[in-house]
Design a protein around this nucleic acid. Structure first.
Lengths: 203, 203
DNA sequence: GTCTATATCCAGATAGAC
DNA sequence: GTCTATCTGGATATAGAC
């Protein structure tokens, strides 16, 4: 008895993950409205009906994915800020890591794209929008603080720190978009090129 | 008789434009699938049925909009390249103009966003995809040539010109995305900041 | 040219058998 | 836990009156 309960728990978790993974992929490449539950089911290798055994609606899956993505990004942002290195090095690390991730990890690229779609589309569920506005600003604020600290130290270019933080993330999102469109043809830019926008020469 | 024919022609043109403008707006903010023909009709202040008097399907409107947007962008790119100024100045002009456009023109921002959605979504009609792949590369190629010319002249930073051209446009697209999401809160970056990625100091 | 009414289809979600 | 069959609503697109 304990055995079958355990087994069920594992199956449940596996299906759950499979549905989420399939949904992320499809939502990122087509958007919420153009993704059919039947597509999700097929990609997850289960029947359409079973999807509703795990989630109560297509929108619910979407909201959970938004929540997860934001949580991970916020964790990473908090970790970055806590590191005992200079602001300039934090920017180098962040940009280098993000570009590398974008280039190597299909999943990371999908997530960025998914979040971009979620943020921009007025068709996104209200619950997802709430999550984004309440918890989605942290990465922006974090980068803004780092930029400001760097400006105080004289290693980061002067200028509106808020606008520069926006620029930081919009560059990443733009590249994620390109990477999704161009696929194999995507050429990752050198981190040093992007860093020229933020760091002072030689720093 | 000539009078009413003329009048009809004008009405026809006006409705045509109204439908296209409304569709661009809605497609940009929600995507093709999430936009209902009823929404388009309402935004254009006509009945749903009348939309089909002017276009044979929702997808057709989409394709025409893609075609128009690409034509305009290609024209602008060709004009830019033909100017009798230095490559560095062409980049300054292009970037300055694009940022200014993004900031001041709601319509320009919408168009960038619309094209980004069209490019990225797998739900995009095949006909639109054909247009994008056959005629959509010109702006990229143009910027790439300008960058290469600047590199030869020593006024543009060295590096993979193709990757830099991609970076150029992905930055614009990323900003368009942000501008759409943040609306009033959008802070346009200084062109000089972006130019640091491309131009050598002091040029 | 424009509208209202409607046919038709398709996708989200549910029910119930296994 | 999983499937098949089905209900139901809503959206595209058409028909026909004005």
């Amino acid at each position: 008895m304990g055995r079958s309960v355990e087994s069920n728990r594992r199956i449940r978790s596996e299906r759950h993950q499979a549905i989420l993974a399939a949904s992320l992929d499809l939502f990122a490449s087509r958007g919420l409205a153009a993704t059919k539950v039947a597509d999700i089911a097929e990609a997850a290798a289960i029947s359409p009906g079973l999807v509703y055994h795990y989630f109560s609606s297509k929108g619910d899956i979407f909201v959970l994915l938004v929540d997860r993505a934001i949580s991970r990004l916020n964790e990473a942002a908090a970790e970055l800020e806590a590191l005992a290195i200079s602001p300039a090095d934090k920017l180098r690390l962040a940009l280098g890591g993000l570009l590398k991730n974008l280039e190597e990890s299909e999943d990371a690229a999908r997530t960025h794209l998914f979040m971009a779609q979620a943020a921009v589309s007025e068709a996104t569920p209200e619950a997802a929008r709430v999550v984004m506005t309440t918890r989605g600003r942290l990465p922006y604020d974090t980068i803004e603080r780092i930029i400001r600290a760097g400006q105080d130290a004289g290693t980061v270019q002067t200028g509106d720190a808020g606008a520069m933080a926006q620029l930081f993330w919009s560059t990443i999102k733009g590249l994620a978009l390109h990477r999704a469109v161009d696929g194999e043809n995507y050429r990752s830019p050198e981190p040093a090129v992007l860093l020229r926008m933020f760091l002072v020469e030689g720093d």
